[in-house]
Amino acid sequence: MPNHPTDLRQQCRQRRRQLTPQQQIEHAGAASRIALRTRWLQRPKRIGLFLPQDGELDTHFLLEALLKRGHRLYLPVLQTLRGRPMAFAPYTAASILTPNRFRIHEPITPHGDHINAHQLDVLFAPLTCFDHAGHRLGMGGGFYDRSLAFKQWFPNVRPVVIGWAHECQYQPELPVEPWDQPLDALITETRLYEFRNIQAPT
């Protein structure tokens, strides 16, 4: 079994790329239904989401449902104030998007409207692989780990961090670095994983 992060990323990305378009649709719908039943999304919140790429579990079903429920949504942005590894910009159905340097679309909004991760109530995080203990392997840029670094000292503060992935991205065990920020929970098309007992933000 590969254990180097680069090999693991490649393996997990290949698995999700092999899913058919129909499987992608079915997985996104099933995962969204699970998410919408969780205690964290029952009252309007500030929620960070991401737009999928490279075979990631689609977020559009969930995004539209959350907007209808009155949640305030935010998408990650790299084009933000200097010194921030990443920020979150408000997103609505009328938002205008532009691709960043990784060709991921992000909202065009003034930097003054951007917020940091600790100002979110819930954050859905992308990943390439996850394991039984709630560790995630991202793309290697460290944007989420650096944005959530404060949780290393204050693990119970907001936001609740929820991984969003296909079940095929599971790995029995992942290598862990001191700066890696574990997930509180994770949702796939088959189930909700809870790694820590986190109550719903008020």
Rank of each mutant, 00 (worst) to 15 (best):
R146W: 08
H4N: 11
T128N: 14
A133C: 07
Q79F: 01
P178E: 11
F50C: 03
Y144F: 15
L97H: 02
C168P: 04
A133I: 03
K45T: 15
H114N: 06
L120I: 00
E167Y: 05
R84V: 02
P110S: 11
Q22V: 13
H111E: 14
Q24P: 06
T92M: 06
G112W: 02
G29L: 11
F150L: 13
L19V: 07
Y144P: 03
P90A: 08
E106V: 00
R103K: 09
I108M: 02
A117P: 03
D54F: 01
I198M: 14
L192M: 10
V161Y: 06
R39I: 03
L49Y: 05
E194Y: 10
C129Q: 06
F61D: 14
I108W: 01
M139S: 02
S32G: 04
W179H: 14
M1R: 12
R146H: 11
D145V: 07
N156V: 03
L66S: 05
Y170V: 08
Q169K: 06
E167T: 15
Q79K: 11
F50M: 00
Q53D: 13
Q10K: 11
C129T: 08
R17T: 11
E26S: 10
L137D: 13
G134V: 03
R46V: 08
T6V: 09
T20P: 04
Q169P: 11
Q23A: 15
A165F: 01
L120G: 13
P21L: 12
H60Y: 08
G163K: 07
H105Y: 12
Q53V: 15
M1F: 04
I47Q: 00
P44H: 02
R196S: 06
T80A: 10
H60E: 12
D58K: 03
V160E: 06
H71T: 09
L63A: 11
V77G: 00
T202Q: 14
H118S: 09
F61C: 15
N3T: 11
A200R: 04
R16E: 10
P201I: 02
T188E: 12
N116M: 11
G141E: 08
E194A: 13
I162G: 09
I162D: 02
A117I: 00
V161K: 14
E177A: 10
I104F: 01
P52L: 09
T202D: 15
E167N: 09
F154I: 15
I115E: 04
Q152H: 15
A65W: 12
F150R: 12
L78D: 04
V122E: 02
P52R: 03
E194D: 10
T128E: 11
R9N: 02
R13H: 10
R37M: 04
S95L: 03
E56W: 01
L192Q: 12
L8R: 01
L62R: 02
E189D: 09
R9L: 04
Q23M: 08
P110N: 13
T188N: 07
V122T: 01
P2V: 04
G112R: 12
H71E: 07
R84Y: 13
Q181T: 14
E106F: 00
S32A: 14
R158D: 15
Y193A: 01
E64K: 14
R17N: 10
R146F: 07
A30S: 15
P90V: 05
P201M: 03
T190K: 12
F102S: 02
R72F: 13
T38G: 06
T38D: 02
P182A: 01
L49W: 04
L192F: 07
Q14Y: 06
T188C: 13
